[in-house]
């Protein structure tokens, strides 16, 4: 395994571990200030929306502040959907480095997310498209697109379910 493959894989593993262990601040720190976090919605049975600006997404956060909003809400303990907090286990696989250009890297991965909450256990799947940038020697996420394969959503969905 190349050093880059290891580095990219570690970053993706790190992210899912921090989400599952609810270490929100460290999770956010994996993202650059200008990071985009995008979860398209399904436009029909076979295609997702593909223009995040002018079509409806499930989540579309245009900088890290959007992730901070989510964490603010979770940590407030005042969100009905987030108390009690669902338990989650992300299992990431199929990590592929798709492109490298200087400090910029693109990678894809798959994730199976098992959650447990009021509805019992639910298993879901996501396809990840990452863009990363080397900042001060360390890879950070500049863009994460999550294709959440469910189009009939069961229960509230937040950043830790995806």
């Amino acid at each position: 395994m190349s050093d880059l493959q290891k580095e990219v894989t570690n970053l993706i593993y790190r992210e899912s571990t921090l989400l599952d262990r609810r270490e929100w601040d460290d999770w956010i720190d994996l993202y650059t200030e200008d990071a985009i976090y995008w979860v398209p919605s399904w436009a029909n049975e076979e295609e997702t929306t593909d223009d995040p600006e002018l079509q409806l997404n499930l989540i579309y956060l245009r900088n890290r502040g959007g992730l901070e909003d989510r964490v603010f809400r979770i940590e407030s303990r005042d969100s009905y959907a987030s108390v009690p907090l669902d338990r989650t286990v992300h299992v990431v696989g199929n990590v592929l480095v798709e492109n490298e250009n200087g400090d910029e890297v693109e990678a894809t991965a798959n994730c199976i997310i098992h959650t447990y909450g009021k509805k019992g256990g639910l298993t879901r799947g996501s396809l990840y498209d990452f863009s990363m940038r080397r900042v001060d020697g360390e890879l950070r996420i500049t863009r994460k697109k999550i294709t959440f394969i469910d189009d009939r959503l069961e229960g509230p969905i937040d950043v830790y379910h995806l």
Partner: peptide, 25 residues
């Protein structure tokens, strides 16, 4: 249009930050 959609996503979806709470309630 973009403003309308971003407000929709903020509030009105079960992946948003308000309808999700309505759903739980």
């Amino acid at each position: 249009r973009a403003g309308r959609l971003r407000k929709f996503e903020d509030f009105y979806l079960t992946a948003g930050m308000a309808t999700s709470d309505d759903l739980a309630a």
